[in-house]
Simulated assay, not measured.
Amino acid sequence: MAIIHPTAIVDPKAELAASVSVGPYAVIGADVRIGEGTTIGAHCTIEGPTTIGRDNRIFQFASLGAAPQDMKYRGEPTELVIGDRNTIREFCTFNRGTAQDAGVTRVGHDNWIMAYVHLAHDVQLGDRIILANNATLAGHVHVGDWAIIGGLTGVHQFTRIGAHAMVGFGSHVSQDVPPFMTVAGNPLAVHGFNVEGLRRRGFSAERIALVKQMHRLLYRRGLTLEQAKMEIAALRGSVAGGDADIESMLGFLQTCTRGIVR
């Protein structure tokens, strides 16, 4: 049986794995499913439909799975899905999706999400992302694996932040941030690429040099975006293991709808 504090309220229709722990005064509604090893802190509120995976640590006062803050929402059956091994700190708010999108707000695996982070409806987070305190993601935002978003940063709806990108403290993100880039400020500007993050993740010196070249083509050579994409594509086959980085960049650039920060 799950370990449930006597002051917690758990709807009989909720499904909790045997090793789930629920703290004092937490409220867990119907249509909530929580996987093995997950801990729910005191005073958390989790509404359904919400699915939470294994070994997550959810700290006190988090609100997960509430209806989207969207004036078009009319009670459609949307959901929140959270993967495994995420850390979700105090006062975070994650809303369910909307019928105007895929209907799912999704959080991947192994993410580190600090206090007061807001994920609006239909946000899609990848894996191993860091969101610092008070990062606020509006509706339909997508964030790639290993990205870092600094505290007190606001991300405009429908914006995308690429894998391995880094957004500095207090930034205003209203255009797409390509993979690997380091950006900051209001107005947002590119300040290089996330070289230290790539080193920590085991990128070879050659792959890092390739990413540096892609940064130069996008931001230092005075090329149009189409010219830069052609030059980046021409780098295929030049570095062992680098083609995946090139395809990540090109795939991102080819699907931008808001334009990239330049």
Rank of each mutant, 00 (worst) to 15 (best):
241 G>M: 04
262 R>S: 11
128 R>P: 12
176 D>F: 01
84 D>P: 12
105 T>Q: 07
212 K>E: 15
233 A>C: 10
125 L>K: 06
85 R>L: 01
212 K>H: 15
160 R>G: 09
104 V>C: 09
247 E>V: 07
159 T>N: 10
237 G>I: 05
4 I>M: 08
227 Q>F: 06
169 F>E: 15
244 A>D: 14
140 H>C: 00
130 I>Y: 13
229 K>T: 06
202 G>P: 09
92 C>Y: 02
41 G>S: 10
95 N>K: 11
48 G>H: 03
207 R>C: 13
174 S>Q: 13
145 D>G: 10
226 E>K: 15
146 W>A: 13
229 K>L: 08
67 A>C: 11
242 G>P: 06
96 R>F: 01
79 E>D: 08
40 I>E: 01
195 V>P: 10
64 L>S: 02
135 A>I: 07
224 T>C: 11
90 E>A: 07
85 R>D: 05
94 F>P: 03
28 I>H: 05
47 E>F: 09
38 T>Q: 02
57 R>H: 11
248 S>K: 11
61 F>S: 15
187 P>W: 04
77 P>D: 11
16 L>N: 01
154 G>D: 05
10 V>Q: 01
3 I>W: 05
135 A>G: 09
214 M>I: 09
251 G>H: 08
10 V>M: 02
32 V>N: 04
152 L>V: 12
66 A>E: 14
87 T>S: 12
1 M>F: 08
45 T>A: 15
54 R>A: 13
87 T>N: 13
157 Q>I: 00
93 T>A: 15
30 A>L: 07
215 H>V: 07
44 C>E: 01
115 A>C: 12
141 V>Q: 01
223 L>N: 13
18 A>V: 06
76 E>L: 02
65 G>L: 01
16 L>T: 01
128 R>M: 10
94 F>I: 08
63 S>E: 08
81 V>L: 04
256 C>F: 00
22 V>I: 10
144 G>M: 03
16 L>F: 03
236 R>A: 13
188 L>Q: 09
143 V>C: 10
160 R>V: 01
11 D>I: 08
49 P>R: 00
226 E>L: 10
238 S>G: 13
17 A>S: 11
24 P>R: 12
92 C>L: 04
130 I>A: 13
116 Y>I: 05
223 L>G: 07
206 E>P: 10
221 R>S: 11
151 G>R: 05
224 T>P: 10
260 I>K: 06
73 Y>D: 08
32 V>M: 05
258 R>W: 04
33 R>L: 02
189 A>H: 12
151 G>T: 07
74 R>Q: 15
213 Q>E: 15
